[in-house]
Design a protein around this nucleic acid. Structure first.
Length: 152
DNA sequence: GCCAACGTTGGC
DNA sequence: GCCAACGTTGGC
């Protein structure tokens, strides 16, 4: 089982939306590095839900991967903002996964605090200029984050 | 295959 | 709202 961190803008799709829906397609990833990580995800993997581009960015809760990678349907829809005319049905370019709501943390763990944790210095999230929207989290990083979360 | 121009991400 | 950093596009 692997661990992941996945970013989303709360105004577009926040953890409250996932809670209401229960399960949702994680769509709209249009970056090859992130897509390759999506393709590595397996059912049962655990993921941190991160709110980006908001007043206090940070980890706000947890979810699990409930369906492994499959073609992101939004790439085929000409009316959708994630439409990709270069993608074809028999050779889809972009991948999505299904995620299942886990929990909303009673206190979020802000980016500002994550930056202070020496255990996370190699995590892409805190690296200068990194814009990767989802990334693997090592077991050691996961444990450090959970420990910090429980101490809040 | 280089690289300038452009668009996007996302913290601040 | 600003802008640094980065990825992508397309001319050559």
């Amino acid at each position: 089982m692997a661990y992941w961190l996945m970013k989303s803008e709360p105004e577009t799709f926040g953890i409250e939306h996932l809670k209401a829906r229960g399960t949702a397609l994680w769509d709209g990833v249009r970056n090859y590095q992130a897509r390759n990580f999506l393709r590595q995800m397996a059912v049962g993997d655990e993921a941190l839900f991160y709110h980006s581009n908001t007043k206090v960015p940070g980890i706000v809760g947890q979810m699990t991967i409930s369906r492994a990678g499959y073609p992101d349907p939004t790439q085929f829809d000409p009316h959708h903002k994630y439409y990709d005319p270069k993608s074809t049905l028999d050779n889809p370019r972009w991948t999505g996964v299904d995620v299942k709501f886990g929990e909303i943390w009673s206190k979020q763990l802000p980016l500002e605090q994550l930056r202070l944790m020496p255990e996370l210095e190699s995590l892409a999230l805190v690296r200068r200029g990194n814009r990767l929207s989802l990334m693997p989290v090592s077991p050691a990083e996961w444990q450090a984050i959970m420990k910090k979360h429980q101490s809040l």
